[in-house]
Design a protein around this nucleic acid. Structure first.
Lengths: 223, 223, 223, 223
DNA sequence: TATGAATGAGTCTTCATTCAT
DNA sequence: TATGAATGAAGACTCATTCAT
């Protein structure tokens, strides 16, 4: 809403910093909280830390979020919505083989989500789902259902074009989902421990996954 | 029920009740801890609760596990690390195609681990790895490294027999690991919320995964 | 009494009650701690008790002193270390014989320290030194070293004026220190037990000590 | 009672170790406790540690001493009695000047007590007197009263022989007591901290104390 | 709104003491 | 007597939450 004002024509004086900050508070808190929750988990993050990171006092945080749990829910809520930009559109207009489309989907998924703090949200949701059942439901509705729907369409496209085999689509989507979710979880757990030697390179990982996904491990019979 | 066996004839000396309990304590505590950690997470589980579940007092727990963190480590060790020696043996003697071997590996993995509370520990380790760096390290050493080694051998066997294509084995192992870890994570997060509609059936999931893993999504060129 | 001054006219702004309390907190806590530590010893004093005595809650204490041990250190600092700067000044301006100076030193020492709760802290430090090595070190640096230095100067003054014999000053300082420390210890141990009959009267004790210190027990040769 | 048996004429077989140990238990416990209480203080010493040092189990300790406090009292009790060997006799037969006698008393006191674990008892009693009032009373009766009596006699001897000035004996005894008690306390507190630089050499300390005690700090008028 | 001092319920951990064997 | 497993009361410390300013 203040967007209108902010983009007003060459307005000579920028709005009072105070005012701008005031408006921005909840967002800054959510950003700080996202960052810390992702880094340390829900339980291990102290609300005071979040407030400090956002540059406000502990009391102010509770002005906007009556509870640590509420803060958490808001963080996830806020960031889950962002998880689905205009992907659907993008895919409707995709031109090319379904194999390429699948690869494109996974690479895009990684670039726009896995490679951003949003992947931390996924990890957070997976880690805390049982402690926040309504988040799980919300996530299911807002992310999983549409996400799976999208992937289903891609697979269905391939099947109907004869490029893919006949597939049990309900199951096959997990064929795409599993490696991506795994990669995000890995990145934010084992992969985040410096001492761990077995580091996964996301690009190569995705490349291999798509490759095997399309052609399987088995050697071609005639070749 | 096993009481019958325990009171069987010519039992040389029944262990004193006290003694029996003494021996059993750590195990009972570990069981209780496994149960509660999996159900509520590490931070949300109170040590006293664990003790009570095991039928002992808080103090007794600290007799065996000097620290809550030590208890957690012991649970991980008991439920994950201990599984590996047997697995290694099992696979050495496998007879059959590498495809069957891969399927056998994944089904066994699920039956002996995914389908038991141990899978909850896997989820916990992924969730808490960053808070317990030394657990992450020893998990890497004791579980991931040998586990990946085992899978690598299976894949290598297939490659050298000509059954599988030439593969970048370092990457290909994740092709097997990812769906399994994903399945365990799912089961203990989104999948554990009753409200969630999109429930995954492990058997069908694994079946599909193996199928696609072996033959890919792509339809056979000539057939 | 200074209240009069505080409410004097044109007082710009009376400090908010909250603010006043805030400023006073550490001091009140220190007073309470002094009192309780002296009365019951370090180990036997519960931090909550200290807080309650200061009229605040347990949590508030930890706001100012992160640790029980830190509280103890602060008490020592506040009650012992802080006395020294003033003393040093006081003695620089003393006029009179060195014998009088010595008497003055001991009487002052007693009045300003021995006769106050601070003497209890001295006793506590002696009692607990081995359990708090870093307190022992800083007590040595901040109290013993400057204190002995001061006494040394007094004795040196007497020696160089010819009033005192040539003395091994390093040893002679203990001649002054020993009775004073003894008196404080006594007051807070044996002397504090009502049942004990053999009560020491500090004034007479010091009087006798100074007397013997200056003239010895031996009868004058010529008289 | 078993003393009789134990001193039996050249008994060929030494008593069962077990039996001997059994008899010795309380003594070993008291020794261990003395050692640890002196080293770490009452509160910081764990009863289990004492038991371990004595080579028995925690339970056994409580067989002999129903309470940690009882153990403490027994330790002090036991060792306080030892503080007065046959000193009185020794002094009755002393031949020499009263100055020499005083020096002899202090040196002996140090050698037979200050320099032995008994000095730890003195420190313990001074430190814990207020928490154990009956120990204070007992100590007063058994140690302080006779001790002061002895010193009083020495001083009285000097006074009546004209070697010492007329003295308020009740006060003058502290002239001898204070440095000795101080020295013992020092040894077991500040002096026991390695980091402390200002270490007191007992022999020189006593030498100086006696010297000043007899002749004072003041230079002889005529010389 | 914003602050940050204050709170106190909650948690881990210790350790003297008990008691079945 | 001796053991050592078990107990549970007690205490230090944390941190989400409140509230006067």
């Amino acid at each position: 809403m203040s967007a209108l004002q902010e983009t007003a024509l060459q307005r000579p004086e920028p709005p009072h910093k105070r005012e701008r900050r005031k408006q921005a508070r909840p967002g800054e808190l959510l950003d700080a909280a996202l960052c810390l929750f992702v880094e340390k988990g829900f339980a291990a993050t102290r609300v005071e830390e979040v407030a400090l990171h956002a540059g406000v006092s502990k009391g102010t945080l509770f002005l906007y979020f009556p509870t640590k749990e509420d803060l958490f829910k808001a963080v996830v809520h806020e960031n889950i919505v962002k998880l689905f930009p205009a992907w659907n559109e993008e895919f409707k207009s995709f031109v090319g083989s379904s194999g390429d489309m699948l690869r494109f989907a996974m690479v895009t998924w990684w670039n726009q989500m896995g490679n951003t703090p949003a992947s931390g949200i996924v990890k957070l949701v997976m880690s805390e789902a049982k402690n926040f059942p309504d988040i799980a439901v919300f996530y299911q509705e807002e992310v999983i259902r549409p996400g799976h729907g999208l992937l289903r369409q891609i697979l269905a496209r391939g099947v109907s074009s004869g490029e893919f085999r006949a597939l049990d689509l309900d199951q096959a989507v997990y064929t795409v989902v599993a490696p991506m979710i795994f990669l995000m979880m890995w990145k934010h757990s084992i992969g985040a421990c410096a001492a761990t030697s077995d580091i996964v390179d996301p690009e190569r990982f995705i490349h291999t996954q798509v490759d095997v996904l399309l052609h399987g491990l088995t050697a071609s019979p005639t070749l």
